[in-house]
């Protein structure tokens, strides 16, 4: 288990991170979301030891991360970085060797990952001659060549074409299935929702929510229901039922307060007119995220955030 335990970091007068805590389990893909400047990159840099935390600790399998453990992490920095004038293959072999692989192991691993990520034909080219998308694939190779025990990827999907996104997703899933905790940040929430087992939302340096998408949905306890059929105003006056949205074509969305029986609501709707559709609305992560960040930013000052 990768444990990020109450890490704080201050840059000058700005509190970049305030007691950020969460954990990523082996075999889990963890999505790290938050607006720009919320603290995602700072957190990842601290995990990698590129930055030192003011307080708090990062642990892997129970022991604090030291230089030797760090070497076994695969890292993709937000600021992509490779030697522009070095050939792809040489560069990857060099990075693998810095992580402790022998020459032969490095060569085999580079061949494997370059093939998997579709840059096998470019290993003899200088990095600067590759398109940005291909450079990104090479960057992911660089994070994978030493067969890391933990993967930390800062925005691995930004700037990728749809094919590359598919390849990248499947690689991350495979790594997770082989028992590696994978943590990545992204602004593509639909992708995060699809790919991640659990999600952490960070806002203004504080974790405001951690959990699976389903858990995030159930966080506030209310239930949303889409109803198609009964005339407008059918829900008016029903206790614990709030009309969230309505259109002119007989469609409405209502929020049920905690404890309200949906069967009672269905009966009320039937009483008002024919019901063609009555179903639970599961808000996508985009919507959950908006709610969490908005309410989280307001609550952050006094609420202790539950971390898994």
């Amino acid at each position: 288990m990768l444990d990020i335990g109450r890490i704080s970091k201050r840059f000058g007068t700005r509190q970049a991170l305030a007691e950020v805590s969460f954990a990523v389990r082996p075999g889990e893909v963890f999505g790290f979301v938050g607006s720009n400047g919320a603290g995602k990159t700072t957190t990842m840099r601290i995990v990698l030891g590129v930055l030192a935390a003011d307080s708090g600790e990062v642990r892997w399998k129970g022991s604090p991360i030291d230089a030797d453990l760090r070497r076994r992490i695969g890292y993709m920095p937000e600021e992509r970085g490779l030697y522009p004038k070095m050939k792809v293959g040489e560069q990857l072999r060099y990075l693998a060797r810095l992580h402790g692989l022998s020459n032969a192991e490095a060569a085999a691993s580079v061949e494997h990952w370059a093939g998997r990520l579709g840059v096998a034909e470019r290993v003899g080219d200088e990095v600067q001659k590759l398109s940005l998308g291909n450079q990104q694939r090479v960057q992911l190779c660089a994070a994978l060549v030493h067969d890391p025990e933990v993967l930390v990827l800062d925005e691995p999907f930004s700037g990728l074409d749809p094919t590359a996104v598919t390849v990248m997703s499947s690689v991350l899933r495979d790594k997770a299935e082989s028992g590696v905790p994978v943590i990545f940040s992204s602004h593509q929430l639909d992708l995060v929702e699809r790919l991640c087992d659990r999600i952490g939302v960070i806002a203004a340096g504080r974790m405001v929510a951690v959990g699976s998408v389903e858990e995030l949905r159930e966080r506030d306890g209310s239930i949303l229901i889409d109803v198609h059929g009964p005339p407008a105003g059918w829900a008016h006056g029903l206790p614990g039922v709030e009309l969230v949205a309505v259109d002119g074509a007989g469609r409405s969305r209502v929020r049920l307060a905690a404890g309200v029986d949906d069967q009672d609501v269905l009966r009320a709707a039937l009483a008002a007119g024919p019901v063609h559709e009555f179903r639970r609305w599961r808000p996508p992560l985009t919507e959950l995220y908006r709610n969490v960040v908005e309410s989280g930013a307001a609550a952050a000052d006094h609420a202790e955030v539950p971390a898994a």
């Binding site: 030891g49 890292y75 920095p77 970085g81």
Partner: peptide
Amino acid sequence: SRVVELLLASI
């Protein structure tokens, strides 16, 4: 080229 961050994550 920012490669330094990648390098310093391991050495």
